[in-house]
């Protein structure tokens, strides 16, 4: 590093270290500026809005109020002024968490073998397989979601085939259920699971797999004791990449859940849209952010501890 620094050859080591430190900050500056303007700034706006009073026709009135934050978890009865838990909100939180976890798990179950398959192909064919994985990912999200809809609706391809084959007498209601949202999100986010796992898998030294077999480990044991621990960073990254956007997913639950299977993203959108309660929307957004962060901290900590035991 220091060789490339434009410091005079005669500079003392201390001076060189200082100039290197300065260069480092200089290089970091563009990223810092963008991050603070594009992430911290809006976040601050959202935070401020969440403690204001909702305006009658959307927007906010500049009066401090913590009502929205209470409204995230409790409801005030319109007539009796009695406080009860906001079941509707908690239901949505619970559904979001549940569906996101299930989606991440499903993506892992489907994505891991896929990544393994691709990583064990001859080098020149791997790119072709990865391209096939990536093409749907480049397609517009709405189009892909409607494609799933077409497949699983009552007169859709799957039901038509099932009825025609005589396996069922009448179409199964799959669309507008949690199932359809789960299927949709798994399909949409699968590449985000496959990519990081494949990246880890491709670096895996397959001599280690042979060494496992050689030392009396059967296929399952090799997978559990050799392959999985070594590609775990990819699995962790993939799970986070799928879980986090799932929690805030909007389009997929909207289209495939048909407004009945609300997730957090839809609830937030409702506040800013139809319900015109911007402060509550802001409070819900920040709650979502908190949920994501808490979940990630737990996850990373659990993985980290396991890692220490393993390694």
């Amino acid at each position: 590093m220091s060789e490339t620094a434009p410091s005079a050859p005669s500079a003392s080591p201390g001076r060189r270290a200082r100039s290197e430190r300065r260069n480092r900050w200089l290089l970091l500056t563009p990223a810092m500026v963008i991050l603070s303007l594009a992430a911290s700034g809006p976040l601050l706006v959202v935070l401020i809005y969440s403690v204001l009073t909702p305006g009658d026709y959307g927007g906010v009135e500049w009066r401090f109020s913590l009502d929205s934050w209470f409204a995230v978890v409790v409801e005030r009865d319109f007539f009796t002024e009695e406080l009860t838990l906001a079941d509707a909100h908690l239901m949505v939180f619970w559904r979001s968490l549940k569906l996101s976890l299930c989606t991440a798990l499903l993506c892992l179950i489907v994505g891991f073998p896929t990544a393994y398959f691709i990583a064990t192909r001859p080098a020149r064919r791997r790119d072709m397989w990865m391209l096939l994985i990536m093409i749907p990912f480049w397609t517009n999200l709405l189009i892909r979601t409607f494609a799933i809809m077409e497949l699983i609706r009552n007169q859709g391809t799957v039901n038509t085939l099932l009825v025609a084959s005589g396996l069922i007498d009448e179409p199964i209601q799959m669309l507008y259920t949690e199932f359809s949202v789960l299927v949709g999100m798994t399909y949409v986010y699968l590449p985000l699971m496959i990519l990081p796992i494949y990246a880890s898998m491709e670096r895996l030294n397959f001599d280690l797999v042979e060494a496992g077999y050689d030392l009396y480990a059967n296929r399952f044991q090799v997978l559990r004791r050799v392959i999985f621990p070594l590609v775990k960073p990819g699995v962790v990254a993939g799970s986070i990449l799928v879980f986090v956007p799932c929690l805030g997913a909007y389009v997929t639950p909207r289209v495939l859940g048909g407004g009945k299977q609300l997730m957090l993203g839809n609830l937030i959108e409702l506040q800013f849209g139809q319900l015109r309660n911007w402060p509550l929307g802001a409070a819900l957004s920040l709650t979502l952010l908190a949920v994501v962060m808490v979940a990630l901290i737990f996850y990373v900590r659990a993985i980290g501890q396991e890692g220490e035991r393993d390694v």
């Binding site: 030294n205 280690l208 060494a211 050689d214 480990a217 059967n218 050799v226 393993d310 390694v311």
Partner: peptide, 20 residues
């Protein structure tokens, strides 16, 4: 299969498990 043969290998790359 290899895991049922009473034969062990010392690999050219050693192939030691890096996570152990």
């Amino acid at each position: 299969p290899p895991y049922q043969r009473p034969v062990n290998t010392v690999f050219q790359s050693y192939a030691l498990f890096p996570h152990m």
